[in-house]
Write a protein that binds this DNA or RNA. Structure first.
Lengths: 207, 207, 207, 207
DNA sequence: CATGAATGAGGGTTCATTCAT
DNA sequence: CATGAATGAACCCTCATTCAT
């Protein structure tokens, strides 16, 4: 078993334990035990508990930045971009539940995020998102009477609420539910929650 | 100084310290020192650190339930109800910043609330909100093709995002900003983020 | 309610609580609560927890000294003296269970009995007992080839074993059991546990 | 220094400190200091203060059970069995004074042993002893008109009284004193404290 | 690299005792 | 006398981190 294998083992163990018990209630010993490695070995790979946690969290942010960057630069329509971003969260929920759970329950709370570094991560994500929103406004797709970062708050806040509820309830995510989630967020975000004159219950079509 | 005064002193001290350092990094001694009382006295009034924190958190929930209950039963229009709820958060931000900050960074989504009791509090709030949304659908105000709790998620998620950003940035809340926040959330939630046919880009400055 | 009433209330409460929970696990607050008096009042009557306990224990010793003194000076036969002493323990078991229980489970163990004062109490009781045994030897009733304090140890040790078992088992003490206990101890102490030549399985207790 | 050495070091330190100060007045720090190890190491080997103490106490009981079992099964005469048991206590007094002292002052009759587990240990010892006494009765060696467990109480009570006095007085145990102790207990237990007809230190009828 | 024994600063909690009212 | 709020020294236990092997 080489270096990377062990490290991977520990990271997966950490994801599990941090997710189950939360950062504060997780002991380094728990991670070592779960990973099936010796106690002290954890410190060969990770500087400290905080650094370990940070390492994990950073992976989340990097993938998030990546998707945002990709969507920002993609030539797809704006609705598609937004759908893709929601889909990213749903995929993460399905395939990396622990990671997303940690993000939802620990990240904004962690003392890590009382640091300048933590805040910077949020800002970076928001900034990327703002660019998408701005472009959408410039292109005439989004209304321009709302500041782009306000649009960001509303859209991301909505996603986070859905994800939080799912995570806290450990709810199963079916294909059907995925669709409903995406459609609901997209439809309300784009067209609003008001009943329309001609409302007949149809879907929000666009692009 | 009577019993309630001392208790109030401690609660205010706790609000400050929990807000500044977070639950995990707050020592009971910090609270006692900040309150200007002796170490042991804290335990005269509060069973334990957790019970103390819970006591504080419960106050938040109770005021939240209260406003939700009030709006649910009020005969005002639905837009007004939603505006009042946002206003409640903004008022809390202005006048009870510490409390709201604790809610945002420690309670909402926190692993502290993986307990049945914590989840029950969320459920109760969501249930109250769902009733408002359902009524709005029944009355034809809100569109009916979206599940009422989905509307809840989107609306509350949006608010929470705004509040979180404000809290993390310790941003000052001017009257003007209050208005813009309310208008943005309400407007997007009700009418959507899409540019309208007759949209001419006016209104609501960015910044 | 006058001073002595309150004091009596507290002493009875203390007997109960010390007996139930042991010295170390008894809080002054427990005693006050049990006695139905206010927290601080205990300190008007008793210097400290240790002094309180000591006060209670002293009562035990004083009654014990009294009976020993009485039996020492009585003109009754030696067997009768011994029976009376056993009877004293059994009566105390019946009527002052808590007191005897505390003696059995706490006194020899207490840090109070690592003090010179505590040891002095034991010595005083042993000294009184030794006098009885010595007189019995002088009078030819007890064998003289065993040091009188050795006789004391054996006799008191036997009693204490019976009492300890009863206390730990919270066993009920019937009249019949009292008799059997007295007869057994007396009979074995006086005549030994060996089967006698003419042993035919008859009851314990000569005379 | 290997694992067992350290553990042994701590156990010996604990025996000393528990013996000197009693369970309640012993701090884990005392044990660590006495053993010359760091504070935290104690918890590396022992779950808790109580578990540590229990571990020590269990060793006592196990050696006691062992000797009782051995004597129960031995083919020696009953007097020899009883002598061996007394000898066991005296040997323990000489070579493991701390252990015996802890047993006498902290365990036997202690409220620590109000637990079912503690009582079970007593019962097991008594049961083993009862078997010896019963066999002695069946074989015609002991009188049969006394319940075997009553014989047990008297014999063990006598031993415990001797040991307690020795422990509390920290008395030195010479070979001569050992003999006298054994002879006294055995002689009185088997033959009684009454002066015999043919006693040459005799007489003076009484009663 | 790997192991797990060793360290020790902290922090929550208890509770005997004091004291103002 | 009575009350119970107030004090603060202990003390158990945890656990991140270090280090000898």
């Amino acid at each position: 078993m080489n270096k990377n294998d062990k490290q991977e083992l520990m990271i997966n163990a950490a994801l599990e334990v941090f997710c189950e018990k939360g950062y504060a209630n997780t002991r380094m010993a728990d991670i070592a035990t779960r990973a099936g490695v010796s106690y002290g070995l954890v410190y060969h790979y990770f500087e400290s508990k905080e650094a370990f946690f940070d390492n994990i969290v950073e992976r989340w942010w990097d993938t998030f930045y990546e998707i945002l960057e990709a969507e920002k630069n993609s030539s797809k329509g704006f609705q598609q971009k937004l759908e893709n971003i929601i889909q990213f969260f749903l995929d993460t929920y399905s395939h990396k539940f622990n990671l997303l759970s940690i993000f939802v329950t620990e990240v904004s709370r962690s003392s890590l995020y009382r640091t300048e570094r933590g805040l910077a991560r949020f800002r970076k994500a928001f900034a990327l998102f703002d660019e998408i929103m701005s472009k959408g406004q410039e292109s005439g797709y989004f209304r321009s009477d709302i500041a782009p970062h306000y649009l960001t708050y509303i859209f991301l806040g909505a996603i986070e609420a859905f994800i939080s509820v799912m995570v806290l309830g450990k709810e199963e995510l079916t294909k059907k539910r995925e669709e409903r989630t995406i459609n609901s967020i997209i439809s309300v975000f784009l067209c609003g929650a008001r009943a329309r004159e001609d409302d007949s219950g149809e879907d929000a079509g666009e692009d």
